[in-house]
């Protein structure tokens, strides 16, 4: 099968599989998140400083 024969559905499914692969690699290395340290549902009003990283991070 050549690349040109791939339908949109196949390519979209491959993209979803790529996400699945990244998640699997991550889960194997970092393990599952600790729910007991999960932040409040909404940052606004939580009283906590933001801890996430952004594209503007250095």
């Amino acid at each position: 099968m050549t690349l040109s024969a791939l339908s949109r559905v196949t390519v979209g499914a491959l993209a979803v599989c790529l996400i699945g692969l990244v998640l699997a690699v991550d889960l194997a290395r970092s393990g599952a998140p600790d729910l007991f340290t999960a932040p409040p549902a909404i940052a606004l009003g939580s009283g906590q400083a933001p801890t996430g990283a952004h594209c503007t991070a250095q």
């Binding site: 998640l23 991550d26 599952a32 996430g52 990283a53």
Partner: peptide
């Protein structure tokens, strides 16, 4: 940490 804790 897990990717599931990363905002972006």
């Amino acid at each position: 940490a897990s990717i599931l804790t990363d905002v972006t």
